[in-house]
């Protein structure tokens, strides 16, 4: 019995959404275990012995049953809406990611553009949260958020456009197909530089250390989410990790050849997941090794270094493509 297309899409979206939520939950465990290793600790252990396998579930349950506190002075409408506004774009970006040929919600012909456009919408939720909380720490954090996202979205987009130019398509599956012979990260000079720029911009776009000035718990306590508790806090946390995972998937797609890899075709999704987690672990590694930098230094890095560099990179890629022709290596 064939399902009508709408129902089919809904079903796929439902499956992907739940898979993403589950993955995000367990990615937190991966990060905690990885960080624990770096810091010569054990990390989660007792809940779901011996390796804390049930810790993410326990955390989620704990957050669900926590009291939901709304500050008396908060702007209730904005405050309550902010976690949702933040979460939706973070989940929506998974709509365009194909996990294997034909396995995804929608392989749009402007997939990369859609991804970049939607993922930068999260800033609206961030700002709403910071503004609506009516807290000075949150307010400062919201201001920093706007500063940072505006500064880093441009290099992020430019770095992501390098593989797009090389492949000659905005469709994600086409970009992967173009890497059939050679993943773009191995593309001489251009690919590697773009990958590094992508990673740096990713750190900033995800608000991770050393660019986590929004959260900055030693200065701003917890930044824009200082007043959030319970499920609203969980939604923000979920959105943050979903966004992080989404950009890792995009990086794996654009630079590491997505689902391509040795072995039979059914291994494709696993290759893809493995590559995305590799990027995630690199980001985590950086997070647990660096100190946070200051807001003015972050802006200086973006506008004085990263933006010109990615622009030149994009220009160089354009020249290469113009002389050689797009599509493949």
């Amino acid at each position: 019995m064939a399902l009508p297309p709408v129902a089919w899409h809904a079903l796929v979206a439902f499956v992907v959404l739940n898979a993403v939520v589950l993955l995000v939950t367990y990615v937190t465990l991966l990060e905690r275990k990885f960080a624990a290793r770096m810091q010569s600790r054990i990390g989660p252990y007792y809940v779901g012995r011996p390796h804390g396998w049930l810790q993410p579930i326990a955390d989620a349950l704990k957050l669900m049953i926590k009291e939901d506190i709304v500050p008396a002075a908060a702007d209730r409408g904005v405050y309550n809406l902010a976690p949702v506004v933040f979460l939706v774009p973070c989940m929506l970006i998974f709509a365009t990611i194909p996990f294997a040929p034909g396995l995804g919600v929608a392989d749009l012909n402007i997939g990369v553009l859609f991804f970049l456009a939607v993922s930068s919408l999260e800033i609206v939720g961030l700002f709403m949260g910071g503004w609506g909380s009516n807290n000075k720490y949150a307010l400062l954090s919201a201001m920093r958020a706007v500063n940072q996202i505006i500064s880093y979205d441009l290099p992020f987009v430019f770095a992501a456009l390098v593989p797009v130019l090389l492949a000659g398509s905005l469709q994600m599956s086409a970009i992967v197909d173009a890497q059939q012979g050679l993943a773009f990260v191995f593309y001489p000079v251009l690919g590697q530089l773009a990958f590094v720029a992508y990673l740096v911009a990713t750190l900033a776009a995800e608000n991770r250390v050393p660019f986590d000035i929004l959260e900055a718990e030693s200065e701003l306590v917890a930044g824009f989410r200082v007043e959030y508790s319970g499920m609203k806090f969980a939604l923000i946390q979920l959105g943050e990790y979903a966004h992080m995972l989404g950009t890792s998937f995009l990086g794996a797609l654009l630079f590491l050849g997505g689902w391509l890899g040795p072995g039979p075709a059914w291994l494709g999704p696993f290759w893809f997941l493995g590559k995305a987690l590799l990027i995630f672990l690199i980001v985590t590694w950086v997070r647990w090794s660096f100190v946070r930098i200051r807001v003015d230094q972050i802006l200086a890095i973006s506008w004085k270094l990263l933006l010109p560099a990615t622009l030149v990179l994009l220009l160089a890629t354009g020249l290469v493509v113009a002389t050689r022709g797009a599509g493949g290596v």
């Binding site: 770096m38 810091q39 986590d212 030693s218 997070r287 090794s289 660096f290």
Partner: peptide, 10 residues
Amino acid sequence: MGGALGGGAT
């Protein structure tokens, strides 16, 4: 400088 959720904690 690095935060409890970052390199400082290490």
